[in-house]
């Protein structure tokens, strides 16, 4: 009996430890990954804003390097995230990634990017709040590109044709400069993808800046 009681005590300790381990993992995933990614993204944006030498031309960027700042007024007046080249796990853990092989900002075709819906800074957490006409402002070394949201769809993760030069139309030849944003859907799941579409509305030299009206949001 004594041996059994001792073994049960040890099992209890093990289970309590396992429970604490799982709770800590949830806390790490839901909270700490945001803390780390937000601090990192803030530092990269600050560096781009203060150091002219930190910028690379979009067509010369290497995997994992930041080459633009993405602002989406609907997500908040101070929402500004770096855009990195590539959509590897490591890139997306730092912020928004540009699908390599899709067009660059401002180009005719489809400039596509991905961001986390939850955790790791959750850059696209509010993607489902985007409304037609909302601005997505992309700042590169020389140019501000103003995209305006046109619509969205919810698709299976395998539905990669949303990234085609003309989304969902493999045969079509692109005549418009589009932007496609993808994120996980529903929140806290990877079952589907929420995809928001936008088209290029205007461009301004970076030295000139953008009109204040661009950053206003209709409530």
């Amino acid at each position: 009996m004594r041996v059994l009681r001792q073994l049960l005590g040890l099992l209890g300790e093990l289970l309590i430890t396992a429970g604490a381990f799982l709770l800590l993992f949830v806390g790490w995933q839901l909270w700490w990954t945001d803390v780390v990614a937000d601090a990192d993204a803030g530092a990269v944006v600050t560096q781009l804003q203060t150091d002219p030498n930190a910028w690379v031309q979009p067509d010369q960027v290497k995997l994992g390097d930041a080459f633009a700042i993405v602002r989406i007024p609907r997500f908040g007046a101070d929402f500004a995230r770096p855009l990195y080249e590539g959509t590897t796990r490591e890139v997306l853990q730092r912020g928004i990634g540009h699908y390599s092989g899709t067009q660059l900002p401002g180009e005719v075709g489809n400039f596509a990017m991905a961001g986390h819906r939850t955790t790791y800074g959750k850059a696209f957490n509010l993607i489902a709040t985007l409304q037609p006409g909302d601005v997505v402002l992309v700042e590169t070394k020389d140019t501000y590109f103003v995209y305006r949201v046109t619509g969205h769809e919810i698709v299976a993760p395998t539905h990669t044709s949303v990234l085609l030069p003309v989304p969902d139309q493999p045969e079509a030849r692109a005549t418009e400069a589009r932007l496609t944003m993808t994120s996980c859907h529903p929140e806290f799941s990877a079952r589907e993808r929420y995809v928001a579409f936008a088209t290029l509305d205007a461009r301004y030299p970076r030295s000139q800046g953008v009109p204040a009206s661009v950053l206003e949001v209709e409530r």
Binding site: Q29, T87, R89, L92, A114, H116, T158, C184, S189, A190
Partner: peptide
């Protein structure tokens, strides 16, 4: 990365 909810890439 082993968690199903972190399956980000296709």
């Amino acid at each position: 990365p082993l968690m199903p909810f972190n399956e980000t890439t296709v």
